[in-house]
Amino acid sequence: MSEGRLRKLIIGDAQADRVVPPSGFTAHLTLFASGAMAFLAVFALALSLASGRLADRWAEELARAATLRINAPLEQRDAQTRQALTILNQTPGVASARALSSEEQAALLAPWFGSSLPIDRLPVPQLIEVIEDEQGYDSTGLRLRLQAEVPGAVLDDHTRWRAPLVDAARALRRLGAVSILLIAGAMAAMVTLAANAALAANAQVIEVLRLVGALDSYIAHAFVRRFTLRALGGSAAGVALGMIGVWLMPEASNEGGFLTGLGFQGWGWLLPLLIPLLAAAVAFMATTRAANKRLGDLT
């Protein structure tokens, strides 16, 4: 679309606007429906962004960390731990390795056994946190070496339980994206129906305009402009309400886990502002198609 036509669409031509009679009821329905769609789109977008963040965070954090568990009788545990730390520090690809203190281990067990457990007197395996560097280490080689020199050591690199979590978060993000596409499609369908109804209701107006020499583009423009502006206005209101709704949701917290992180962060707050523009573009295309099709059917 040329710049001139775009400007004409936005500013409009007061005379051209008057040739199509105002239609109160469908106008309100279009406004309401595009507002509702935009409101839903904001939440779908929030869900999609939040689960995307979650998937990235889990993938990132868990991929870089591994745990070495030392199952050894109490008297050999310290020696094996020292031996394992030495091996780990020699292994290329390991950025750092650190034995968890007994307080840290107690904190990890607290959700299951309560905080009053005398952990020192139990045969709890010693945990070593292993952080990879950029290159990563050769886990098969490390396992073989540990097997030979530290018989009680078991390396767990988290792959087993990380993958389904990340998959789930990514699936959630896909669902959000699909929802946005469906909302856009439903909105196009709704605008098409409303535009068709308006074109049918104004059949006589169209006939008179053709009679006095109006071009198809002129007639289509009168309808297209109206529906585009309605979709823009309705969805702007819907987005505003949706963003307030998201803003009022509780902050992300450790206690709430995943659900409380639902929202926008940083530049993410700018994304919903695109929704009214997209809604207007969808309405523009839908009405243009409907109008051209209907005008093409006329003799």
């Binding site: 009679p21 006939e207 008179v208 053709r210 020499g213 198809d216 583009s217 005008l295």
Partner: peptide
């Protein structure tokens, strides 16, 4: 269709049932 619209501007037509924009 567009050329036809331009033709209509050069031919004035008074219809049997004159139609107007009633609003």
């Amino acid at each position: 269709r567009d050329q036809m619209a331009h033709l209509r501007r050069r031919v004035g037509v008074v219809h049997q049932d004159c139609r107007f924009l009633d609003h």
